[in-house]
Design a protein around this nucleic acid. Structure first.
Length: 478
RNA sequence: GGCCCUGUCAUCUAACGGUUAGGAUACUGCCCUCUCAAGGCAGGUAUACGGGUUCGAUUCCCGUCAGGGCUACCA
């Protein structure tokens, strides 16, 4: 595999795009044997560094009369096209300069008259084979003589890709089917140069939910977007592979990169366009999050917490305090938070919001929340709340911020015995007191996180169970 | 407008011309569970339409319709 930078459009090419592209591809897990960053024996790998090669071949085609000089101005061409469309004709180049005397044309160019070089499209239908679409044929009547070298001296995409693909010995041209209509022009270049035509595979377009081509307003469209959302590369690669392709049998869906390398075949790619389904990508992402090493997820997830906890984790050393035996390791603590929450998110960037039950406690908001209204109105709720609050406030370990899950469980069981409440009627009110919401992760894991978290030197401290309960009691005014 | 590509559940897709048209996501229900999620189980929903060819069309051919692309001195 070769990485080649196609930057013949000066206006749209910037060095930072190249860096971004390379970073994105590497993140996806793609590697190439040759490219601008790694070198190779068929370089240079930036089209802007290959201009001499393109000009040389263009002159060769010109001298063989397979191409010709065109002196038409852009305005003229524009007008021709409009007229053709209005008269319901093919909007192709009129061929005005096709019949120009070559020697005379050369003299005009030497005199400084601006001109482009056009390729002469042959007088027969252009056929080529496509792995996805089969045999494709275009009538030469509908293919314009393409400009291969602009009057500015810059060559054009449809021409340079052919030169590069041939010189770099590319065997398979795999790209989006928006290039299918360009292919006859490219085939004509191969034929004019007497070069063998490679295999083509035109993959279908990916559409948004509205069946329009995927664009910015559909949300994430660049690889970096997905990375920033906290989509794992293997999930994105797996999902993309499933768009337009399925293995023999069509039942298996989970594929690692090496498995894809082994199983994927262009012959099984469907030609029909596919709608991008974010939910299915999330499904795969959840799968890979759950099946990744916890350390990896912790590391990937940490950046999303920097707003919540400051940059303490990122700056080692700052967490050392006088009483280090009392202060838990922030990194380790955050790891347990991430482990607790990661299995329930679609994307890693949803973690801070999930973690708000740990970082943000607001008793008044919990009491006012419409989600909680039903639970708070249950007949048993008042009794449960009263007994639970009393016991936590009286509990010595809770007061010290060192409530253990076992002790918490004991208290809950006492409340259960004293009030007769069980199941939801018992736990929902307690959850509301402790987390502000009637649903959430298991208490066994949550309690230690809250208690340890309260001892951490965070910009905004985490409240322990005792603090939460007393705030709740105050907010309730009972 | 012209040319090209495409058309199986809502979505991604499977099915040498013969299958009760299969799987997955999403959805619904049940189980598990203190809740939610996860997990397990079950369920509904599809061959765009009209003509051919054929004993038999999702499958081959034609037309219609719909969607997409190209129609640049963009890539």
């Amino acid at each position: 595999m070769v990485l080649r930078i196609e930057d013949t459009d000066v206006d749209r090419s910037e060095a930072r795009f190249e860096d971004q592209l390379i970073a994105d591809l590497k993140w996806l897990g793609l590697n190439w044997d040759e490219g601008p960053d790694v070198g190779g024996s068929y370089g240079p790998y930036r089209q802007s560094d290959r201009l001499d090669i393109y000009r040389e071949h263009a002159e060769k085609l010109l001298s063989q009369h397979k191409a010709y000089l065109c002196f038409c101005s852009e305005e003229e061409l524009q007008k021709d096209r409009e007229r053709a469309t209005a008269e319901h004709r093919q909007p192709i180049y009129s061929g005005k300069c096709r019949a120009l005397d070559p020697a005379g044309a050369l003299r005009r160019r030497a005199a400084g008259e601006p001109c482009a070089i056009r390729l002469r499209i042959p007088e027969h239908p252009i056929r080529f084979h496509d792995i996805v679409h089969g045999n494709v044929e275009f009538s030469n009547e509908v293919v314009s003589d393409p400009i291969i070298l602009r009057s500015s001296g810059m060559p054009v995409y449809n021409y340079v890709v052919v030169i590069d693909d041939a010189l770099m010995k590319i065997t398979h041209v795999i790209r989006g089917d928006d290039h299918l209509s360009n292919t006859p022009k490219q085939v004509a270049v191969y034929e004019a140069l007497g070069w063998p035509v490679p295999e083509f595979a035109h993959l279908s377009t990916i559409l948004g939910a509205d069946r329009e081509r995927l664009s910015k307003r559909h949300g994430a469209t660049s690889i970096a977007n997905f990375r920033d959302m906290g989509v794992l590369p293997e999930a994105l690669v797996n999902y993309l592979a499933l768009l337009g392709w399925a293995p023999t049998g069509g039942t298996r869906e989970i594929f690692s990169m090496p498995e894809l390398v082994k199983e994927f075949s262009l012959q099984r790619v469907t030609p029909s366009p596919a709608v991008f389904d974010m939910e299915k990508l999330y499904w795969l992402n959840r799968h890979y999050i759950k099946n990744s090493a916890p350390e990896r997820i912790e590391k990937l997830a940490q950046p999303y917490f920097s707003q919540v906890i400051g940059d303490i984790v990122a700056a080692p050393g700052t967490r050392a305090t006088a009483d280090s035996s009392q202060v838990p390791d922030l990194g380790k603590w955050l790891a347990t938070v991430i482990q607790l929450l990661a299995p329930s998110v679609d994307r890693l960037d949803q973690l801070p919001e999930k973690a708000s039950l740990i970082f943000h406690y607001d008793a008044a908001a919990a009491l006012a929340a419409s989600d909680n209204a039903e639970v708070l109105a249950w007949p048993q709720t008042d009794a449960v709340l009263a007994r639970f609050t009393y016991k936590i406030l009286e509990d010595e370990s809770a007061r010290e911020g060192k409530l253990m899950p076992e002790q918490f469980k004991k208290i809950v069981n006492e409340v259960k015995a004293e009030t007769g409440a069980k199941g939801k009627e018992l736990f929902h009110p307690i959850r509301i007191v402790v987390t502000g919401s009637h649903s959430g992760p298991e208490f066994d894991k949550l309690i230690p996180i809250l208690e340890e978290g309260s001892r951490l030197p965070l910009p905004k401290p985490v409240l322990n169970v005792h603090q939460r309960v007393s705030q709740f009691a105050k907010a309730r005014g009972k």
